[in-house]
Design a protein around this nucleic acid. Structure first.
Length: 564
RNA sequence: GGGCUCGUGGCUUAGCCUGGAUAUAGCGCCGGGCUUCUAACCCGGAUGUCGAGGGUUCGAAUCCCUCCGGGCCCGCCA
């Protein structure tokens, strides 16, 4: 709805500008504490037209005309600013649209297929708290883009050709696999032990090299060993992702591109560009004219491919089946991803859009699966759920054990997802147990609680036999009601902005603000105890709030509970 | 050493790309509110040289330069 309002402001202002004889590409519209939408376009025009901003503003203002039934109620001039205010029609239509469109309210109609790759952690152990920043950003963006209208496919790229998996395979042949542990944790244990031994006893290193070579040349027995090891790890990884409401549409194995011959074809194409040269027997691409000083090695002197080469083939393959590619990558991939894009550009291929997130570190330093220094996602979720359980137990002691467990699970997962998504990806963070287990701050439980409150009112209304299939939205004139309706209306704007800029944290902020607006309404405006016509209108507003809160939570991958 | 990035009240953080009207919110702190639809809530208060300095501009948290501090990267690893 907000987008419709904004469009109308845009066209009304454009016409007024034209009538007054001004031209500019940018109308400088923004949300403002002084208006629903404000324009500071007069400042932009001042130097070009050699008039004071205020003067220009007056001329434009005089030419503004608003149609009856417009979403714009009135326009005011405040010095050099032009302030637009939303009308009753806008508020009323918002409510009707929410009730009509329900879970689709706020969705946009963008077109196109998007392949979004996220998580893609090496299958050598469980996901840790750094990996899940990737997963949560990726999954939330996928949900946002779907609401924005795109046809989104999520992919997990499995790096099965790296040395680390060969180490796991070697380790499985030499160490005990603990079948009592969750499978990905058991793989990590083997991997950590194997690494330790390989450092202490260098003589085993050639054995790992041999395993890698066998895998690359396609030895069927070795392939089976790799597949078993990876499947074992992935089983646990998928379980952890599933626990956080995250799933992938496809799992793509890196080796696929070697075996299909696409990697060697890719090397051939790179050679043909004339940008590549042999140095010490290795094939290198010069990227200086792409702004990257470091040349990129495409093929080793022994003729084998590297990670980036295979990634090039993967991206070419992806590009052939979608309109946009989006990769979620950790900050350690900054250089490598810009090299990847540069080569794709040279080859005239489509480039991915890359969302980089900064590292999550522990107070004692960075994490490492290889060294066994990490906090797993499972451990975090277990601890958070335990803390959430204590909280429910304290707040709702009368409820059943089953209820408490259920609430603890969705509150815990919600808290973890919200905590990750609320801070923008480019911020490096240090993990802190105390903070992770703190439910007092305004996070996911706050938003979930608002939703539960809305459900509770609706349930009470139903029990009393109160209906609101007919209501007059114009009765909703309290300040808290108007603020709340405007907040509901702006859901589409948040989808649009977060999808356009690939910023999932905007949705987190919105959900919190919406919950905030609802809680204020809840506190100051009685619903059930008022005259029937007001009760009906307010019940409709509560239902709308419930719907949009649920939509926002769904976009964040967080459960919207009826009770907690 | 070079490249990229972050630096906003005690702590966490929005805004920065696309410069504009008193810099966003939470935690914590101080004070108030449950005979009223779930108090995992609401209201009020204190707290800021937007890392430092310079520049561009009518106007800078936002753009440019220098410096300081943290992170990441700089392998024929992934």
């Amino acid at each position: 709805m907000f987008l419709k309002f904004k469009n109308e402001v845009y066209s009304v202002l454009s016409i007024a500008m034209e009538k007054s004889g001004f031209k500019t590409a940018d109308l400088v519209l923004s949300e403002s504490p002084h208006a629903d939408i404000a324009s500071s376009v007069a400042f932009r025009l001042a130097p070009e037209y050699r008039q004071s901003p205020k003067n220009i503003c007056e001329k434009i203002y005089r030419n503004i005309t608003i149609q009856p039934d417009s979403y714009i109620d009135r326009v005011e001039m405040a010095g050099p600013y032009i302030n637009f205010f939303a009308s009753r029609a806008y508020l009323n239509e918002t409510l009707l649209r929410v009730l009509l469109e329900r879970e689709d309210f706020g969705n946009l109609d963008n077109k196109g297929k998007v392949i979004l790759e996220h998580t893609s952690a090496n299958p050598d152990g469980p996901l840790h708290i750094g990996h899940i920043r990737n997963s949560v950003i990726g999954d939330t963006l996928a949900r946002i883009l779907k609401r924005a209208g795109f046809d989104v496919e999520t992919q997990y790229y499995i790096n099965d050709m790296g040395r680390q998996i060969a180490v796991v395979v070697w380790g499985l042949a030499n160490f005990k696999f603990d079948t009592t542990k969750k499978t990905d944790h058991a793989i990590a244990e083997v991997y950590i032990n194997a690494n330790k031994t390989l450092v202490d006893e260098k003589e085993h290193s050639p054995e790992v090299d041999g395993i890698m070579k066998q895998y690359e040349t396609g030895n069927s027995e070795t392939i089976k060993k790799f597949k078993d090891a990876i499947d074992t790890a992935m089983q646990g990884i998928k379980e952890s992702l599933g626990r956080m409401n995250i799933s992938h549409d496809k799992f793509i194995w890196e080796s696929m591109f070697v075996r299909s011959g696409e990697v060697s074809r890719m090397i051939g194409r790179v050679k043909e560009t004339g940008r590549a040269g042999m140095k010490d027997g290795a094939l290198m691409v010069d990227l200086k004219n792409q702004g990257i000083q470091k040349p990129l090695v495409i093929q080793r002197s022994d003729g084998t491919s590297l990670y980036t080469t295979r990634d090039l083939a993967y991206h070419e393959w992806k590009a052939s089946q979608c309109d946009r590619m989006i990769d979620i990558l950790g900050a350690d991939h900054k250089l490598i991803s810009s090299q990847l894009k540069a080569v794709l550009r040279i080859l005239g291929l489509k480039e991915p859009e890359i969302v980089i997130f900064e590292f999550v570190s522990l107070p004692e330093g960075s994490m490492s699966t290889r060294r066994g220094v990490f906090i797993s996602a499972d451990e975090l979720l277990d601890q958070v759920e335990k803390a959430a359980y204590d909280e429910v137990n304290k707040k709702r002691p009368e409820t059943s054990e089953n209820f408490k467990k259920k609430v603890a699970a969705f509150v815990g997962i919600g808290a973890v997802r919200y905590d990750i998504i609320r801070v923008s990806p480019e911020k490096a963070t240090t993990f802190d147990w105390k903070e992770a287990l703190d439910f007092e701050k305004q996070g996911a439980p706050f938003i979930q609680y608002s939703h539960a409150r809305a459900c509770s009112i609706l349930k009470n209304a139903k029990d009393e036999g109160f209906v609101f299939d007919k209501f007059d939205p114009s009765l909703l004139v309290e300040e808290q009601e108007v603020i709340l309706i405007k907040k509901l209306a702006s859901f589409d704007n948040v989808i649009d902005n977060s999808a356009r800029e690939l910023k999932p944290n905007l949705m987190a902020i919105y959900a919190r603000e919406l919950a905030d607006a609802f809680n204020q309404f809840y506190r100051y405006v009685p619903v059930l105890s008022v005259e029937p016509e007001y009760r009906a209108a307010r019940l409709a507003l509560v239902d709308c709030s419930r719907i949009v809160l649920a939509n926002a939570l769904d976009t964040l991958g967080i459960t919207a509970p009826e009770s907690m």
